[in-house]
Design a protein around this nucleic acid. Structure first.
Lengths: 201, 201
DNA sequence: CGCAGTAGTTAGTGACCGTTAACGTCCGAC
DNA sequence: GTCGGACGTTAACGGTCACTAACTACTGCG
């Protein structure tokens, strides 16, 4: 949990605004001029920082996937280090981490499963691999928690719970979400309840 | 549950293929020539059936929203007619109906929350209103089933469960889903479990 | 037959958009 | 001081794309 205090670089500004715009109107629906305008420079000025529009999307998607996977793996290893690591506590940690991500980086969550097919083959392969690994982390933890659950059902349940947790962009359209902690708690309960019910064959 | 036996009209073919292509590559990512090719005619021939590309998307999205809402309202009225209408049975009926839709019309489900912003203002307003009404149908049933659940939490839970049920497009990428009945049953359990857990404050 | 309407075709047009080219400006280092 | 690189700018180019125009083929009907 490292927090930054220094000002964001221009490159980071661009990525952030591009993520927002891509999430709002789709990759093909946003022009480079708009992205430039969002950070106060104009159109082709972006090419000092990125080789092209595709590269921005690629960096965003690869970055998201890497962060998600790294977070998941970190929590698993932390749990393994702790002596009192119960499967439920680990699953809760995974859920909480994903919720934090979904609540803090809504545009990225939106992009994550929406614009994957707009990537070059190599990048798409890499993102898909990272996503698969992240799912596998969850599946292993879920199966440790509910050993009676068949693997393919565990995997389907994990995908479904991702859909549940990633629904946050559809929630508080106009104003900011009323209560971040409350929303997080509710989502956590929903996810736990879904997994429990999956195991009740 | 009326099933059609007559051949689909050209117009319906176009809508079906357009839905598939829009879902795969996004509205802006598909050209009219491709849509035409998918139904065996070429590009501008589409304009005999639709005034423009936007109109196809509009008809798709309005149609989806209307069908979802009509299905939900139908189930509520059926339950009210039956003497033995329990809240749980009604909620199960809603869940099952939504699952059927998600499993049978994957491309439409994908479009439904992805390309809404590509619509003209009037159409977008209409779709949003239909969606809102559909959510309200669910919220009322959920609150009847779990009276202790505050309204805003019920609404958030409904949105989240939609995300869960609509995750089916992310499941069986390569082959067809192994077992439709099994997938439906699993999704149903997950959704029920999520609502139950929501109510356990 | 003649005719009208339906459903296509190909060719072209104007707009948009990603990208490149050529040029300017500021600023720190030697 | 001036030199060089980082960072922008505007102008232009080439391709793509939605849409239109003009024309053709089929089909049922009097």
């Amino acid at each position: 949990m490292t927090t930054r205090t220094d000002a964001p670089t221009r490159r980071e500004q661009i990525l952030k605004e591009a993520a927002r715009l891509f999430a709002e109107r789709g990759f093909h629906g946003v022009g480079v001029d708009e992205i430039g305008a969002a950070v106060g420079i104009s159109g082709p000025g972006l090419y000092r920082h990125f080789p092209g529009k595709d590269a921005m999307l690629a960096e965003l998607l690869v970055g998201i996937s890497e962060r998600l996977l790294a977070g998941g793996q970190l929590r698993v290893s932390e749990d393994a280090a702790c002596a009192d690591g119960s499967p439920q506590a680990l699953l809760d940690a995974l859920i909480e981490g994903h919720i934090d991500f979904a609540l803090d980086d809504r545009p990225l969550i939106t992009l994550h499963d929406r614009e994957l097919d707009r990537l070059r083959d190599a990048d798409r392969k890499r993102v898909r691999q990272l996503q698969r690994q992240y799912v596998e982390v969850w599946v292993e933890v879920v199966r440790e928690m509910y050993p009676e659950l068949p693997e393919h059902e565990a995997r389907a349940a994990v995908h479904a719970v991702f859909g549940l947790l990633n629904s946050t962009p559809h929630l508080g359209r106009p104003g900011a979400q009323p209560d971040r902690a409350g929303t997080a708690a509710l989502l956590h309960r929903l996810a736990r309840g879904a997994f429990e019910a999956a195991a009740r064959a």
